[in-house]
């Protein structure tokens, strides 16, 4: 049922294909990229070349091929998005399920904290949490340097679980009054068993949906940070979509349109595709719609 409904969502299927192709390109980066990340397309003068046969999407300020850099950048961004979404969804679903199921004080406190975080402007909270996280020296072995990719992943993991927890909590609150949970409690199942065997599997729809939205959140979030100069300074041989979009800011006034347009469009296409998939997943797994049909 759910799969058929998902497949009938044309935009989502198109998005899956686009993302699939993109992922293939990115995984096969050594073959699809025409130049190395830091390789110039030719001897100087090579900066700010317009798109041409030699460099399909033009070159940047020091003569590197934008097309190849985009491929490497998307690779880093997808890793950041997926990894931090996995962290935030795992933590978020567990916390949300426990809070929703047990209720009481724990639930109250948790919801207050998430309310607070969500009410603040996103960028402000993000910058402050980032600086606090970076200032805690005991956490350094886990997070690495403040401008490393690992740090960004953990930052968005910490940041993203709250939204997920809210969604899962809502789902669990409505599930826990259903008969099958009551039946399972009546035969003496432990709380842990109920959460693991009944509540989480039945919340798989919302969990999948929050996973997609977390991926978008982390990818655009990384770009936002990079845009304001707080992004990851990926080491040698790496860049990220955020870095490329950030570099676009400087290219606008001078009119190097390719440096602005291509990274921006790549980011928008990725965000749009994942959003479409998330939307279709939500429609497809909504149990309320199930009963209607």
């Amino acid at each position: 049922m759910a799969i058929r409904r998902f497949l009938s969502h044309k935009a989502a299927v198109t998005s899956c294909i686009i993302l699939g192709v993109l992922t293939l390109f990115v995984i096969l980066a050594p073959f699809t990229a025409r130049y190395g990340v830091n390789e110039s397309v030719q001897m100087p003068p090579n900066s700010f070349l317009t798109p041409r046969a030699q460099a399909w999407l033009g070159t940047d300020d020091i003569g590197r091929d934008l097309y190849s850099r985009l491929i490497y950048g998307v690779r880093v961004s997808l890793v950041i998005g997926l990894a931090s979404a996995l962290i935030s969804v795992t933590v978020g679903s567990l916390v949300g399920a426990v809070a929703g199921f047990r209720g009481g004080k724990l639930d109250d406190i948790m919801m207050r904290i998430t309310d607070l975080f969500l009410a603040f402007p996103f960028l402000v909270t993000l910058l402050i949490v980032r600086s606090v996280l970076g200032a805690m020296s005991w956490i350094k072995p886990l997070t690495g340097e403040m401008n490393s990719i690992r740090f960004i992943i953990i930052l968005f993991g910490i940041f993203g679980w709250m939204g997920v927890a809210r969604i899962i909590r809502g789902q669990v609150l409505s599930l826990k009054e259903r008969e099958f949970i009551e039946a399972s409690r009546a035969v003496g199942a432990s709380r842990r068993y109920i959460i693991r065997r009944h509540l989480l599997p039945n919340s798989i729809g919302p969990i999948m949906v929050s996973l997609t939205f977390s991926v978008v959140g982390a990818i655009t979030g990384e770009a936002t940070l990079a845009f304001f100069g707080y992004g990851p300074q990926a080491g040698d041989g790496a860049t990220s979509l955020g870095n490329l979009v950030g570099a676009a800011k400087g290219a606008v006034q001078t009119g190097f349109w390719w440096l602005a347009v291509f990274p921006c469009f790549t980011l928008v296409i990725i965000a749009l595709s994942i959003n479409f998939i998330g939307d279709a997943l939500r429609d497809a797994t909504d149990t309320q719609l199930d009963r209607g049909e």
């Binding site: 845009f227 800011k249 980011l267 928008v268 965000a271």
Partner: peptide, 22 residues
């Protein structure tokens, strides 16, 4: 949907490029 998926800095960059520079 497209509007939601475009982060504000991207629309800003593109608008700036179009209406001011070009």
């Amino acid at each position: 949907f497209v509007g939601i998926s475009i982060p504000p800095y991207i629309s800003a960059i593109l608008l700036q490029l179009l209406f001011a520079v070009y």
